[in-house]
Amino acid sequence: MRTLISISDLSKTYSGGFQALKGINLDIRDGEILALLGPNGAGKTTLISIICGLINASTGSVTVDGYDIVDDYRMTRSKIGLVPQELTTDSFESVKDTLAFSRGLFGKKPDPGHIEKVLKDMSLWDKRDNKIMELSGGMKRRVLIAKALAHEPEILFLDEPTAGVDVELRKDMWHHINALRESGVTIILTTHYIEEAEEIADRVGVISHGKIIIVEEKTELMQKLGKKQLTLELQHELADVPDTLNAYKLELSDDGLRLIYTYDSQEERTGIAGLLSDLHDASIKFKDLHTTQSSLEDIFVTLVREGQ
């Protein structure tokens, strides 16, 4: 797939001296949904803010569809819609007016039909004449999304779009995000919810301490998710794993009291039956056993820890 946004060696040091981004390299593909996962303070918002023009990068460059975000800012910014993390809305303007304002700001001529469609998609049509301050928090978040869509962007940045949105509406929003992708919009979203990334992303990028640790197809990550571990609590301490069990690539814990077998639960033959019978033959007795499944969350936590 074609690369739409290309980020190279991007770093950001804030005026206080704090380095929030450390040499980010990332290619975002045309038409994909990319989820950026990362703990608080990882640098997600900083990265998005640079691409959208809110803050200046310290070093490095970003191109959008081949245009540089600094030199050709008119080209790049008119392609991008941004939904910020914080609920920053006007207060006294009506919902409809604020959308019309956004559209104008991005250089598009008025189009009430499009505004109506966006408001309906975001379930805000009933509230179109209300002042924004009369809306609930979740509604305000949807107003921000609607504002970002008012100028028909090709690329949409969503900085934690579903924070503070109830479960039903979250599902609904995922549905709309998918519909946008179908219509060709490239979507980059940040989230703390791993299920959210699982649910809608094509690729997942993990960012921690200002660095991209991994960017992978979600399906590949899901295969890692498919890995399971069988842990056997032994009755007697074991010095070494006998050679007859080599095929299973077992891990022995340091105290010699636990054997760990990692297998792929999506395989037809997990090898557990064979392992248990071979253990019996080797006269290794165990008192208990349990299985654990590594979740994307575990992968994420491990990655972030390793990345430090």
Binding site: M75, I80, T88, D90, K147
Partner: peptide
């Protein structure tokens, strides 16, 4: 002050 300036900064305006 309110933060809505984000939109101005992200818009293709000189």
């Amino acid at each position: 002050y309110s933060g809505t300036i984000y939109e101005l900064l992200s818009a293709p305006v000189s």
